[in-house]
Design a binder for these strands. Structure first.
Length: 486
RNA sequence: GUCUCCAUCGUCUAGUGGCCUAGGACACCGGGUUCUCAUCCCGGCAACAUGGGUUCGACUCCCAUUGGAGAUGCCA
C-alpha cells in the first residue's frame, strides 16, 4: 500500500445481539487500523427491513464500548463520509446501479421472485443460479416494462468466460472460474440494495482500504471485484478471517452457534466472563503474536497486531480456556474491584450475607473462573449441605471419622470459651494450631475436620477459620456440635 | 451436486528446508509449597491425516487421496 492512511470498517447488521465471531471481526479490523495509525469506521448494515429489531443498534454501541473497541467514524460519532447507516444512504445506490446498466455491467430483470429451491432432494442437490432470462432483453422491451411500472430488480451482468484471481492477505491467491459466478441481484424489488452491492459502494465511497471480514465471503469476492472494475475503482486489500467453530455434544464441529453454548458477547458476560478476558481470548482465536505470551491488554494488542499472525484454519471455541483466562483477569483485579464486579453475581444482595460480602469476596478471588460459580461456592454459608462421616476421611491429612471426633471433642469447648469479641481468624487459627501441636499431628488434620464440620464440604473458599469468622460464633458452634454427633 | 478454502497434541497455537528426539498454553494426571482444601510452583501425558514425489535433507515445497468447513438467497 502507498502512503495512504489505512481505513478499516466493521459493518454489522443490527440483529439484537453480538456474536463473538462478529466481535472478533470488529476487533481485528480495529486492531489493524490502530496498529497502522489508521481509522476504524462503524457502519450499520440495515438494508433488510424485514429483519429490523428495535434497540439492536444500541446493542452494537454498548458491546463495542464494553469491549474497548472505539470507532473514529460512525452513526453516533459522525465523520466526513456519512451517513453511516445504510438505510439513510438508500438514495445513493440506485444511481450507481443505473450507471452499471449503462456500462453494460448490469441489467434490469423482470422475472418473478426466484422460488426457493426445493429443500434439496435425496442427493442433496440444490438448484443453482439464475437462468439468465432477462440478461439480453431487448432494450425496447426494457423501456416499455419500466414505463409500465413493472417491478424489477437489477442484476450484475457477469462475463462467464475465463477465471478471476485476487489476492487475500491471509489466504494468498484465490482463483475462481467466472462461469460459477451468478448474476447476483444488486438492487432488490423494494429498491434497496443487497448487501453485496451496498457493501462495495459503501466501502469505496467511505475510502476503505482494507476489507476485514469472515471467510464466508471468500468465494463471492470475485463478483465484488468485477463491480469495482466496472466502476474503474481501486480494489481494496482483503483480509478474510477463518471461522470460529463450536463442538456439539456428539463431538461434531460446525460454525459456532447457540447449541454450543453462549455465543454472544452479552451472553458470555452474563455467564460471568469479564469483557477484557473475552476480548483477549478471541484475539488469540485465529491470531498469534508468534510468541508464548497469552495475556495481552487491548492497548498492547493495538501496538503489536499484525496480519501475518492471522491463521488460515478455523478455530474451535474452548470455554475451558476462556474460563482459565477469565480467572487470570479476575486475579489481577484489585480486591476492591473484584468485590465490586463479583457482587452482582453472588446473590448476596438483600440477604443476611450482604454485610459480610467484604469478608467473603477476598476468599473467592483466587478461586473463581467464572463469576457465575460464586453462588454455589458460597451456598453453604447460608445452608449447610448434607454429608456423611465418609467425608472425614482424607489420606493426606491422615484424617478419618475418629480423628474428626477427637478434634471436635477437644476443640468445641475451646471455641466456646472464646469471647465473642475475640472471635476472629487469628484466634481461631491459634486454637487449632495449639491442638495440632499438643497432639503432634499436622495442622491439616484438625482443619480438615473443622472445615467439613462448619461447611459440609471438602473444598471451600477460605479455610475453617475464615468460614467460622463469617458464620459467627453461634452458627459455627451449632454446626460443629451437629458434626460431632455424626 | 458444483465451486472455494483448510489440515501440527483432545482444544488454541509456535514452526516459513537442516536449530524439531516438534516449543508454549488450556484440559487431564502426578509431586511439592503454603497454618488447611483450593490457589501457586514443578513434572508427566499427548500431534506433524495418508500416499506419492522434489531435495543431500521435509512438519515445512509440489501432486493425489481422505477428512473438515464455507459458498451456492430479492439474508448479511
Amino acid at each position: 500500500m502507498s502512503e495512504q492512511t489505512v481505513r478499516t470498517r466493521f459493518a454489522p447488521s443490527p440483529t439484537g445481539f453480538m456474536h463473538v465471531g462478529n466481535l472478533r471481526t470488529a476487533l481485528y479490523a480495529f486492531l489493524l487500523a490502530r496498529s497502522q495509525k489508521g481509522k476504524f469506521i462503524l457502519r450499520i448494515e440495515d438494508t433488510d427491513q424485514a429483519r429490523y429489531v428495535d434497540g439492536a443498534v444500541d446493542v452494537i454501541y454498548k458491546t463495542l464500548a464494553a469491549a474497548g473497541i472505539s470507532h473514529d467514524e460512525g452513526p453516533d460519532v459522525g465523520g466526513d463520509y456519512g451517513p453511516y447507516v445504510q438505510s439513510e444512504r438508500k438514495h445513493l445506490y440506485l444511481p450507481y446501479a443505473e450507471e452499471l446498466v449503462k456500462k453494460g455491467a448490469a441489467y434490469y430483470c423482470f422475472c418473478d421472485k426466484h422460488e426457493p429451491a426445493e429443500p434439496a432432494d435425496a442427493e442433496g442437490v440444490v438448484s443453482s443460479g439464475y437462468d439468465g432470462h432477462c440478461r439480453n432483453l431487448d432494450p425496447e422491451v426494457v423501456k416499455a416494462n419500466l414505463a409500465a411500472g413493472k417491478p424489477y430488480v437489477i442484476r450484475q451482468k457477469i462475463d462467464k468466460e475465463g477465471v478471476s484471481t485476487y489476492h487475500d492477505a491471509v489466504f494468498g491467491e484465490i482463483t475462481i472460474e467466472n462461469k460459477v459466478l451468478d448474476d447476483q441481484i444488486l438492487i432488490k424489488r423494494d429498491g434497496m440494495p443487497t448487501y453485496n452491492f451496498a457493501n462495495v459502494i459503501d466501502d469505496h465511497t467511505m475510502g476503505i482500504t482494507h476489507v476485514v471480514r469472515g471467510c464466508e465471503y471468500l468465494s463471492s469476492t470475485p463478483k465484488y471485484n468485477l463491480l469495482y472494475r466496472a466502476f474503474g475503482w481501486e480494489i481494496p486489500e482483503y483480509v478474510h478471517l477463518p471461522l470460529i467453530m463450536g463442538r456439539d455434544a456428539d463431538g461434531n464441529v460446525s460454525k459456532l452457534s447457540k447449541r454450543h453454548g453462549s455465543v454472544s458477547f452479552e451472553g458470555l458476560v452474563a455467564d460471568g466472563y469479564l469483557p477484557a478476558a473475552i476480548v483477549n481470548y478471541i484475539a488469540l482465536l485465529g491470531w498469534s503474536p508468534k510468541n508464548d505470551r497469552e495475556i495481552f491488554p487491548l492497548s498492547e494488542l493495538e501496538e503489536i497486531f499484525n496480519v501475518r499472525g492471522l491463521n488460515k484454519s478455523s478455530a474451535v471455541f474452548d470455554y475451558d480456556k476462556l474460563t482459565w483466562m477469565n480467572g487470570e483477569y479476575l486475579k489481577a483485579l484489585s480486591p476492591a474491584e473484584f468485590a465490586r464486579v463479583s457482587q452482582p453475581f453472588s446473590g448476596v444482595a438483600g440477604t443476611e450475607l450482604e454485610p459480610k460480602w467484604p469478608l467473603i469476596a477476598p476468599l473467592l478471588q483466587q478461586r473463581v473462573g467464572r463469576l457465575t460459580e460464586i453462588p454455589e461456592k458460597i451456598g453453604f454459608l447460608r445452608e449447610q449441605p448434607e454429608y456423611t462421616s465418609e467425608l472425614f476421611c482424607n489420606k493426606k491429612s491422615k484424617s478419618n471419622p475418629e480423628t474428626a471426633k477427637a478434634a471436635f471433642a477437644a476443640l468445641i469447648p475451646e471455641f466456646e470459651a472464646l469471647a465473642d469479641a475475640d472471635w476472629d481468624v487469628e484466634a481461631l487459627n491459634a486454637i487449632m494450631t495449639r491442638y495440632a501441636e499438643t497432639l503432634g499431628v499436622k495442622i491439616g488434620q484438625p482443619m480438615w475436620a473443622i472445615r467439613i464440620g462448619v461447611s459440609g464440604l471438602a473444598v471451600t473458599p477460605g479455610g475453617p477459620a475464615e468460614i467460622m469468622a463469617i458464620l459467627g460464633k453461634e452458627e459455627s458452634l451449632r454446626r460443629l456440635r451437629e458434626a460431632a454427633a455424626k
